[in-house]
Design a protein around this nucleic acid. Structure first.
Length: 576
RNA sequence: GCGCCUGUAGCUUAAUGGAUAGAGCACUUGACUACGGAUCAAGAGGUUGCAGGUUCGAGUCCUGCCAGGCGCGCCA
């Protein structure tokens, strides 16, 4: 049930050790996929110089010490010294059967770590934009995958619920009335509320003065002010939850850990850093200066932890998250799924935490960088510079175009069924678009790309799964009750089987590298292999033994597709 | 100026230092009396920004250029 490379790896190591000495056992035998065989071993080329023999001769010696009769039908040395291994169909079939008998589909369980994962992090009283969409979708896929691998994932939605804008927002809420239609915008169109507040702030000096006073009252813990603030946050939660629910994201109110949560810890953090000599006053602000962080004209770059007016910035709050996650959540590893431009800031926060002894070297802190989403002008898409793209509207567009597709393709389905499929497919397309490219790459936002339903898209994978289900439905069979031997009779079945066997290795790699796009790439090629199989290998019309084997392959494909899609956060509709 | 990131087919992109750089979209051709055509089979499309270097082997590592982006003290 392991991938062929995982099975071969120790065997190759042993052969190399037998041929050239035990010291080589721990070296990477360099197994790679190959266009000439099923697995290619490249160790001989690297070993050549070390053992003082030409690469082909090294390869030949490795092969001589290798007994793969049960596994491989062909092992030969090729080119400058590649070892090409062709697997036996019987062995592939056995591996597929073993995988089908494994509830984890060949994905090894890892020693469970406690991993707080910081993602999504929208701001109160602001529209979520496509940048938030990306960190939300990628973070959620990582959370699901790490959980499946056996880790204890602790979701941390670090919402922006504190800071100077809240004076303005609270005053504006008072002006329009807490139960007014204007206030209702917080749940439906938060940007409209924010911008109206902003306009009042800029146009009306008295209002601006009141807003500033309100910030002071908020920070002083004034009861009425806190009540109003809570109202803003609660309204925004409604908005976030509508988006999350529409997206099918696993975040709940229980995962909220916004900036305000750390408010009480901030003075202590400053005090501790200052008395430890890590932070010093500079130009009126309390700053941490770190070795190796220099900016303009070689001047050291500060991490400002207390502003000259006595207020705190996000550096201090982020330090508090480190302390909280290490001490209270008992993290083994810290994971931040946030924008790439924050890389320097995060590096400084972590270095400060390490210097202060808050973040031991044994606990890695990892920044899964989310690349900028650009507008058609190749500039970062900013909510304030025009492009008032509303996320909810984008999601509704996606559902609507999926609905149009279904209405055209499946007029035979009843209204309720079509209404159920549309969100799964439309939202799946949007999420897959964000997941299928490397998370740190920038991309130009393209609505058409997000809504696309053909090609390397979520709907293609969902469609493949639906076609498997259709086979079982028309035969009146339950895919979960499929038993019997697997036989590899054609190259198409062989290719499908080999694809299936890679699932465990791919999921493991996604967890190790924190790169969901690798799962997308894998599932797409699996779906392609199944589509070819579907065209070329009739299942239900085949002779009983072949039929059973093909049902088996189909059922396993379905399980892998559904499981893989679920790890990405995509649904798998029964029909579409 | 300093630091970080990016540059792959017309477009969107993949690739643990491994053989002929792999897909999708768009384009061309073919396959529906179908286990479901949101599909499949095939074709065309590349000096991986440029120039050196390291290596048996470089899209990948190093150096220098070119182009673009981001960051570089009190917004978060």
């Amino acid at each position: 049930m392991s991938s062929p490379a995982d099975v071969l790896d120790p065997l190759i190591r042993r052969a190399i050790a037998a041929a050239f000495g035990p010291q080589f056992f721990d070296e990477d035998p360099v197994l790679r996929p190959s266009q000439f065989a099923d697995v290619q071993v490249n160790a001989a080329l690297a070993l050549s110089k070390r053992v003082g023999q030409p690469p082909r001769q090294v390869a030949t010696q490795i092969v001589e010490h290798l007994d793969l009769d049960a596994i491989a039908s062909q092992v030969n040395v090729s080119g400058p010294g590649f070892i090409n291994i062709t697997l036996r169909e019987s062995w592939i079939a056995e591996q597929v059967e073993a995988m089908a008998g494994d509830s984890r589909l060949g994905v090894p369980l890892q020693p469970g770590q406690r991993i707080p994962i910081d993602y999504s992090a929208p701001n109160v009283a602001k529209e979520m934009h496509v940048g938030h969409l990306r960190t939300t979708v990628v973070g959620d896929a990582l959370a699901r995958t790490l959980e499946f691998l056996g880790h204890h994932v602790i979701r941390q939605n670090h919402i922006g619920d504190w800071g100077t804008p809240f004076g303005m927002l609270i005053e504006y809420l008072l002006r329009v009335g807490e139960n007014s239609e204007q206030a209702q915008l917080l749940e439906t169109d938060p940007n409209a509320f924010y911008q109206a507040a902003r306009a009042a702030f800029e146009a009306d000096d008295d209002f601006a003065t009141q807003a500033r006073a309100r910030v002071v009252a908020l920070q002083a813990g004034d009861e009425e002010t806190l009540r109003l603030w809570q109202g803003l946050v609660d309204r925004s939660k409604q908005y976030f939850n509508r988006i999350y629910s529409r997206l099918g994201v696993t975040l709940t109110d229980g995962d909220l850990a916004g900036e305000s949560r750390y408010n009480d810890a901030l003075p202590g953090i400053c005090q501790e850093l200052e008395s430890a000599g890590i932070a010093t006053i500079s130009e009126g602000a309390l700053c941490v200066f770190l070795d190796g962080f220099t900016g303009r004209e070689g001047k050291p770059v500060p991490l400002i932890i207390r502003k000259s007016d006595g207020g705190y910035g996000y550096g201090t709050t982020d330090l508090a998250t480190v302390k909280y996650r290490v001490n209270t959540l008992h993290a083994d590893r810290l994971l931040y799924v946030i924008g790439a431009p924050q890389a320097l800031h995060l590096a400084m926060v972590w270095q400060t935490a390490r210097n202060a002894g808050w973040l031991p070297e044994s606990i890695p802190a990892i920044h899964a960088q989310i690349g900028n989403v650009l507008g058609s002008d190749r500039k970062i898409l900013r909510t304030r510079s025009g492009s008032p793209l509303r996320l909810m509207a984008l999601l509704e567009d996606a559902v609507a175009s999926a609905r149009a597709m279904i209405d055209e393709a499946r007029p035979d389905l009843d209204e309720a069924t079509r209404a159920q499929i549309a969100p799964a497919v439309g939202i799946g397309a949007v999420k897959y678009a964000d997941l299928s490219v490397a998370h740190d790459s920038e991309y130009v936002f393209d609505l058409g790309r997000m809504l696309a339903l053909v090609g390397n898209t979520g709907p293609y994978l969902q469609y493949a799964a639906a076609r498997v289900r259709s086979i079982f439905r028309s035969a009146g069979l339950d895919p979960d009750q499929t038993v019997g031997a697997v036989e590899i009779g054609t190259p198409t079945e062989r290719e499908l089987a080999l694809q299936l066997l890679e699932f465990g290795a791919v999921v493991t790699q996604v967890g190790d590298l924190l790169e969901p796009h690798r799962l997308c790439t894998y599932l797409f090629s699996l779906a392609q292999a199944f589509s070819a199989f579907y065209e070329q290998c009739p299942v239900l019309k085949a002779d009983p033994q072949v039929r059973q084997s093909r049902l088996h392959l189909s059922a396993l494909t379905l399980r892998v597709l559904v499981t893989g899609l679920d790890l990405l956060g995509l649904e798998s509709p029964e029909q579409m």
